[in-house]
Amino acid sequence: MEIKKTGVAGTMESSDIIVRIEPKNTEGVELTLESAVMQQYGRQIEKVIRETLEGLGVTSAYVNAVDKGALDCTVAARTLAAAYRAAESKDYVWNGGSIR
């Protein structure tokens, strides 16, 4: 997936995260993260963002995330929304499945 423009998703509300994805001229995903729970969950949030982008085939992007205590599923959802917006794509892929 090619990042074509700036894509943002999420809010500053508690339990949410804002993810901003921008185009980058060189390979690699450069991630900056701010979180109120950086010490405890910083690495996990970064892992979820990177894995989500990897799943979409995003190999080049600047990513800035401001976390307000989001669960992993919210981090993934906001990253997906920001990436699709940044790629100007609506070719969503839903993998399905449920752990219930």
Binding site: G10, L71, D72, C73, T74, A77, R78, A81, I99
Partner: peptide, 17 residues
């Protein structure tokens, strides 16, 4: 609408209710 769709999808496939 797109963001909410992702959020509800992820919640349904991840969280236990």
């Amino acid at each position: 609408k797109d963001a909410a769709r992702f959020l509800v999808y992820k919640a349904l496939t991840t969280l236990r209710y």
